[in-house]
Simulated assay, not measured.
Amino acid sequence: MPELPEELTLPKGYVADGPPAVPAPAKDSATVVLLRDVPGSIEVFLLRRVLGMAFAGGMTAFPGGGLDGRDADTSVAWAGPEPAWWAHRFGCAPEKARALVCAAVRETFEEAGVLLAGPDGDSVVGDTTRYAEYRAALVSRQVSLAQFLAEEGLVLRADLLRPWANWVTPIDEPRRYDTRFFIAALPEGQRADGVTSEAEDVEWCTPAEALAAWREGRRGLLPPTWMTLAELAEHSSVASALAEDRAIDKIIPKVVREGSVIRAVLPGDPRYDAAPGHVDAEPGDRIER
Rank of each mutant, 00 (worst) to 15 (best):
K96F: 06
G66F: 07
T74C: 01
A99K: 13
R70G: 01
P94G: 04
A99V: 13
K96M: 07
G80T: 08
T74Q: 04
R70T: 10
R98Y: 12
W85P: 00
W85Y: 12
P83N: 08
E82G: 01
F90Y: 15
E82P: 00
P63I: 13
G80F: 01
R89Y: 12
P63F: 15
G66Y: 09
D68N: 10
G66C: 03
G91M: 12
P94M: 10
G69W: 15
V105T: 05
A104G: 06
A72S: 12
E95H: 09
P81A: 06
P81S: 02
G69A: 11
R89Q: 14
W78H: 06
P81I: 03
P94L: 13
H88R: 13
R106P: 03
A77R: 15
P94W: 14
C92L: 11
A97H: 13
F109A: 03
G64Q: 03
W85G: 00
V101T: 02
R106Y: 07
G80L: 10
R89E: 15
E107I: 08
L67A: 03
E95K: 09
T108Q: 06
W78S: 00
R89H: 11
K96P: 00
A79Y: 12
C102E: 11
A87W: 11
G64L: 11
A72G: 04
A77K: 14
C92H: 05
W86V: 03
G80K: 14
F90G: 00
V76G: 00
S75A: 13
S75L: 09
A93P: 07
G65I: 07
A103H: 08
V101K: 06
F62L: 05
E107F: 04
D71M: 05
D68L: 11
W85K: 04
D71C: 04
R106V: 08
V101R: 00
A77T: 15
A99H: 11
C102R: 01
H88V: 02
A87I: 05
V101F: 10
W86N: 01
F109P: 01
A87R: 05
R89D: 06
R70Q: 06
G91L: 12
E82L: 08
C102H: 14
V101M: 05
L67R: 03
F62W: 04
D71T: 03
V105S: 00
A97W: 12
V101L: 08
P94K: 07
C92V: 15
C102G: 03
A104R: 10
E107M: 02
F62I: 01
G64R: 03
F62K: 05
E82H: 08
A77F: 08
C92M: 11
E107R: 05
D68C: 05
